[in-house]
Simulated assay, not measured.
Amino acid sequence: MENGAIAKALYDKGWCVIEHFISDEFRLELLQEQQEILAHGQFRHAGIGKGEGFTIRPEIRSDKVSWMDHRLLTPLQSKYWEMMEALRVAINQRCFLGLRSYEAHFAMYPPGSFYLRHLDQFQSVKYRVVTAILYLNDEWSEDDGGALRMYIPGDNGEETSMDIHPYGGQLVVFLSGEIPHEVLETHKERISITGWFRDVEY
């Protein structure tokens, strides 16, 4: 699916799932880099809130993250950043969201971890407008758990839920402030690059 089609889906329904967004070769390279970062102890327990309101709440989320610094990207991260930049431009052209920057981290959910229902845009991060999640796992089956459950608002005020399994190479894009979601308990290590297009500069 081309970036223009992704932007159209985002405009029409607020979300989009793209299989094989990256080549398997590139996925494996990113996965290897993630494993090296993890081995060097650069992952930290994820929390909720920002600044003084940041807290570690394992009863709400139990993943670990390693933030990417846009000023110190590795060659592989730069390649992915360029792909996200092209997508940002396409979304702005179609959706007029005023997206101005991108931030991302590697996310790793150990077996038994989860993230309860939430929105990616809340009081302290109103600048997050569009969420983009790329899965890096080698193999995955539905029995492995770890699905992203999105709650899709309906015209009648009701919502429907949809489970997206974290198949390697798949990209999920959705409006950060409109699609509540959760990560169901995973039964094996679940790896992604989770990022947000923002309406502020760095």
Rank of each mutant, 00 (worst) to 15 (best):
A5E: 10
P111K: 05
Y11V: 12
S23K: 04
I18F: 01
R71L: 08
P58T: 01
D63H: 01
L76D: 02
E36G: 15
F26M: 11
A7M: 04
G47D: 10
N3E: 10
S141L: 09
A39M: 11
E142G: 08
S113V: 12
Y202W: 09
N137M: 03
I6H: 00
F106N: 01
D144S: 13
R88V: 05
H20T: 13
H20L: 10
K126H: 11
R44L: 13
Q121F: 11
R198G: 10
L10G: 00
I22G: 01
A132H: 02
K13L: 07
R27A: 01
I91P: 00
F122D: 12
A104E: 03
F122N: 14
D24V: 09
I37Q: 07
F122K: 12
A104R: 02
S101M: 06
A104Q: 04
T160F: 06
V130F: 02
F122E: 10
T55V: 15
S176G: 07
D163Q: 04
E159K: 11
H105Y: 10
W67N: 05
Q42T: 15
K79C: 13
G168V: 07
E19A: 10
E25V: 11
T194R: 05
R149C: 10
S192Y: 01
R117T: 14
V125S: 12
E159T: 14
W196R: 01
L148F: 01
E159S: 14
F96R: 09
L30I: 02
H105I: 13
E158C: 08
V129R: 05
A9K: 04
A9D: 06
Q35L: 14
M150Q: 08
V17E: 04
S192H: 00
E33H: 04
G195V: 03
G154N: 06
R190F: 05
E103L: 04
D24Y: 07
G146I: 02
E158S: 09
S176L: 01
A46N: 03
D24T: 08
A7C: 08
T55C: 13
V172M: 04
R128S: 00
I6R: 00
A46W: 02
